[in-house]
Nucleic acid binder design. Structure first.
Length: 752
DNA sequence: TACAAGCGCCTTTTT
DNA sequence: GGCGCTTGTA
């Protein structure tokens, strides 16, 4: 068994009272957690069901259990509580559903279900969804719920839009009447039960766990924190593990201040810092330290390594995203050729939209890859349809599911009939299916609507009856038959329908997998169990164990490691990403931490690319190199290709800080163009950089845009470049017919 | 009522 | 560039 170093052993052995572990990237955190729990089980004889370990993905929980099984035996891991905040809460709420005001078979609404609820409410109220976009309404609702606020708490306060508040109220009501919860509810409802000083359930929950451990604690939000504080209230054995430098979920309510302030809340907390990195080569660690060093607020700590230098981090300048994709393919090929396992190779990007070009290139060259996350299997229409039927069987109150399938496949129940049903539901304070059944029972309808609706009620009753004797996968197959869904797709023999049928078969296959998996662990197999699981799978959980390289966002890469990492799109506005409302120092700080996470995933080789122009979301823009590239220490990197886009010299501060001129190499007059190019490339060690032929072909121009180029501008339309200036930012003087000559920043121009 | 084409929209990161 | 939605037509 491998030894633990001193701080690791300290963290594993400190079992009484609160403990805060700062675990630097690659510092062996997972081993510490595993040893700590193994220690509790075998040395301290703690029953496994009294230990709760909150992990960031369900996969991490599964791996933890597998390792513990290896160390302590299978009987132990079965009863251990390990999972994400959301899955642990779902499990608790199944048990305490009454106290939380839920039925036993509540469903979890995903983002599209939630949006459908809001859209419905907007329609009911006659509000314009362009003035009140569902996205915006929802994000405001979630922000409040994450703080633990309900609509009732906000009424007294001013400053809340009355229409929005009314939507918030309606949204909560709609979810409860559908016996549905959203992701925030899982946390908040569990928290409320656990914090309740008077209920038996509250006392029970606060007594239940002797040891509570939270991994990736830097990404915990306030309600999650309150929940684990309540769950560890009686024992005070709360151990939190995290790294403030890797906090990347501020946008969904995570608050780094919680980990930074832990010692304030628990003055007697033990504190351990794991600072030795065992994962990466010294050059990669140096690069990571360079990226994170300018961060404004950090817990004092110093990541170090005694690993060999290894290869330099390679920074590659490419003309555009297609060349970037070609470079990625070449690099992956090279890595495979030197014997790297494809599963140990990953390509990272900041936003999913960047993946398409890379995918196309990989596919064209027959390099096996898989996308982690992105447009997910469960978002496909046919898959959602079948899942909606299954959820409706499990929980007939779920309006979102009823509305989805009531006319799928088409059975002649149109919008008017649906509106009639919804009006009746609103009037009687019933769910849509209850109202629908009542209307049918009372014979309150006329003509076609009557027969069609009766047919639907009978169909659902039949399915519900069938569900009793069938396993979830058998039931899924039966649904496809009984609803005519399968027949409908078979009759239409287009390629698209075939693909849909295949997807549905895959879905049924995945239900079967769940059944086998649960049976193997002697867990009860139920439709509710499977539905809960599919609602809470993370991107990484869904990854297949196949010999392929992985493509993913940097967020999805958190907690993972790879021999070779290709980090793409290191350009201003792409990474650091600048969205419509990103602004200010906090967003930029989080982008920096995100870059730190990306760099620290690599064990042996890290390749970083940046493009001089990029087409994203259908718009082509000239790009400045990312400020983060400037923070990489020269001695750890090798810059490849002529770097023609200037770096931003100021790496800290907000997005809007003025671009000041970069330190321009003052070349003596006698220097040749080649020397100037070398000077522009920075101070990499001779021999460490690779300069390719093609990159030298257009020496003399130091930017990708030059006089004579045709360009397009949002306001001025098409024009021709007259002059290019590049002192810091790239400024272009261009003549636009009808507007004359204009001085413009290059990033506001597109090639035209 | 159902389908197809066409338009306009948006466009981070995720449980 | 893709998606969902609306519109128009059979």
């Amino acid at each position: 068994m491998p030894e633990l170093n001193a701080p690791q052993a300290q963290a594993a052995a400190h079992t009484e009272g609160p403990l805060l572990v700062f675990a630097g990237a690659g510092s062996g955190k997972t081993r510490v957690i595993t040893f700590r729990i193994a220690n509790l089980l075998s040395q301290h004889r703690v029953p496994p069901y009294r230990i709760l370990a909150v992990t960031f993905t369900n996969k991490a929980a599964g791996e933890l259990k597998a390792r513990l099984e290896h160390l302590a035996g299978p009987e132990v891991t079965r009863d251990l509580w390990a999972g994400t905040f959301h899955s642990v809460c779902a499990r608790l709420l199944r048990r305490y559903h009454d106290e939380a005001g839920l039925g036993p078979k509540f469903v979890i609404y995903d983002e599209s279900d939630q949006k459908a609820v809001i859209s419905r409410l907007l329609k009911e109220r006659g509000l314009d969804d362009r003035r009140m976009p569902p996205r915006w309404v929802l994000s405001k609702i979630h922000a409040q719920k994450r703080e633990g606020h309900g609509p009732g708490d906000l009424e007294a306060e001013s400053g809340f839009d009355a229409e929005w508040l009314d939507l918030f109220r309606g949204y909560e009501k709609a979810l409860r009447s559908s016996n549905a919860v959203d992701f925030e509810d899982l946390i908040v409802l569990a928290m409320r039960v656990a914090e309740d000083p008077n209920s038996a359930a509250g006392r029970d929950l606060r007594e239940r766990f002797r040891y509570v451990l939270v991994d990736e604690f830097q990404d915990t939000n306030i309600t999650q924190y309150r929940l684990v504080r309540a769950l560890s209230a009686s024992s005070r054995n709360l151990c939190v593990v995290g790294d403030d430098d890797q906090s990347i979920y501020r946008w969904r309510g995570a608050d780094v201040r919680i980990i930074r302030g832990f010692r304030r809340d628990f003055p007697d907390a033990g504190v351990v810092k794991l600072e030795q990195n065992y994962r990466s080569s010294a050059n990669i660690v140096k690069a990571a330290l360079g990226v994170i060093a300018p961060a404004l607020e950090r817990e004092p700590k110093q990541l170090w390594t005694d690993a060999a230098l290894g290869e330099p981090v390679r920074i590659r300048t490419v003309p555009n995203e297609r060349d970037e994709a070609a470079y990625i393919v070449r690099t992956v090929r090279g890595e495979l050729a030197r014997g790297v396992d494809p599963k140990s190779i990953a390509v990272f990007y900041r936003v999913h939209a960047q993946s398409r070009v890379i995918e196309e290139a990989l596919r064209a060259e027959n390099v096996p890859y898989q996308i982690i996350g992105g447009m997910r299997f469960f978002e496909r229409a046919e898959v959602k349809d079948l899942v909606a039927y299954l959820r409706l069987i499990d929980n007939p109150k779920s309006d979102a599911d009823l509305l989805r399938v009531i006319n799928v496949p088409a059975r002649g129940i149109g919008d008017k009939t649906v509106d009639l049903v919804l009006a009746a539901a609103a009037e009687r304070s019933l769910s849509a299916f209850e109202a629908l059944s009542a209307l049918v029972r009372e014979n309150a309808l006329s003509g076609a609507a009557k027969t069609k609706l009766r047919g639907f009620v009978e169909l659902m009753q039949g399915l519900s009856a069938a569900s009793v004797g069938l396993s979830p996968s058998e039931l899924a197959g039966h649904v496809l038959e009984a609803t005519g869904y399968r027949t409908r797709l078979r009759e239409d023999d287009s390629a698209e329908s075939d693909a849909r049928l295949e997807n549905l078969e895959e879905l049924i296959g995945s239900i079967r997998e769940y059944e086998e998996d649960a049976a193997g662990r002697s867990e009860p197999v139920s439709l509710s169990g499977w539905l809960e699981r599919v609602s809470l799978v993370s991107a990484v959980d869904a990854a297949k164990d196949v010999p392929s390289i992985s493509l993913m966002t940097v967020h999805a890469a958190k907690g993972l490691e790879f021999t070779t990492v290709i980090l793409t799109g290191l350009e201003e506005e792409t990474f650091p990403y600048r969205g419509m409302d990103s602004d200010g120092i906090d967003d930029l700080e989080e982008e920096r931490r995100l870059a730190y996470v990306a760099v620290t995933r690599a064990r042996e080789r890290l390749f970083i690319t940046h493009a001089e122009s990029r087409t994203l979301f259908g718009r082509t823009q000239y790009k400045l190199a990312s400020r983060f590239l400037r923070d990489l220490p020269d001695e750890a990197v090798a810059r490849e290709g002529v770097q023609r886009t200037p770096y931003l010299p100021s790496t800290t501060g907000s997005f809007d800080d003025e671009y000041s001129p970069p330190p321009r190499p003052r070349a003596p007059a006698w220097q040749t163009a080649v020397d100037q190019a070398r000077a522009r490339m920075g101070t990499a060690q001779p021999g460490e950089r690779v300069i390719d032929r093609e990159a030298f072909d257009d020496l003399g121009d130091s930017v990708a845009i030059r006089p004579g180029d045709r360009v397009r501008h949002k306001q001025f339309g098409r024009g021709v470049v007259e002059r290019v200036e590049h002192d810091g930012s790239v400024t272009v003087v261009a003549r636009f017919p009808g507007h004359g000559s204009k001085r413009l920043r290059a990033e506001y121009l597109e090639p035209g």
